[in-house]
Design a binder for these strands. Structure first.
Lengths: 128, 128
DNA sequence: GAAAAATTTGACTTTTACGTCAAAGTCAAT
DNA sequence: ATTGACTTTGACGTAAAAGTCAAATTTTTC
């Protein structure tokens, strides 16, 4: 079938605007096909968008996301480049591990807040 | 001793600028004491800054961070407010869990990239 | 107590990631 | 062929989170 997605189908699915997708195209993150001037999105484009949005949720900048996509598209062949890439990977790993730790600590705090709320609610009104 | 920290001590420790700390003060996140016009930071301020930076790393906005600080400073007493807060806590929890999942997936991908690099390096140059 | 270093304030600028039009083109259905 | 929905392009706008710069104070050090 090789179905095409229209731009609004995708914006609805992902809760983003057409402006956002156009922006991602301008930034070179996606390259939907065209019929005339209208963009036609393939399944591959859709998957890529999902990855872009994941990167966005994590807090990656457009430049970082572009870089990641780039590496997947054509991985470096030369040894120096490979080592450089590995260094960058290691940096990113540390950043993400820190972020994960931050998140876990914050989740803990959310638990405390919730408990405090429940306790307080029990104190003032008997009904839950 | 009840030591004071100067603004630059803190900027150096946390790798941020004085502008950032002033900005956080303008935004009502911190309230360092003053001797004349100069800011004097206490240990409590320092801890608060650490929490602000953690929030920042997670991707919280200033407004969200302010809200969190506010809840800690004076938790709501009224039942309706408490329920509202619990709802917000639940939303944040889901957001953070999603983010954690995103991070874990990305860490997995980083592993793959690293392995691919190592494989490729082994292929081309024998020396590691 | 004078010079040097640090700090403050205020105003203006920048960057990122889009939002918001407006005008024109396009396609699907009537 | 026209209506109406959708899409594109381009230009300009915006909000958040600082950065930058200059001038005035203040503090510290010798």
């Amino acid at each position: 079938m090789n179905k095409y997605y229209t731009i609004t189908e995708l914006t609805r699915e992902f809760g983003i605007s057409t402006r956002t997708l156009r922006f991602y195209e301008d930034e070179g993150l996606i390259h939907p096909e065209r019929r005339g001037r209208t963009r036609l999105f393939r399944t591959a484009d859709r998957r890529l968008i999902m990855e872009i949005l994941r990167g966005r949720r994590i807090g990656f900048t457009i430049a970082e996301i572009r870089e990641i996509i780039q590496v997947y598209k054509d991985p470096p062949g030369e040894a120096g480049q490979l080592r450089l890439l590995m260094k960058r990977v290691e940096e990113k790993r540390e950043e993400l591990q820190q972020k994960r730790k931050d998140i876990e600590e914050t989740l803990e705090e959310l638990n405390n807040v919730e408990e405090a709320c429940l306790t307080r609610l029990a104190e003032i009104g008997v009904g839950t």
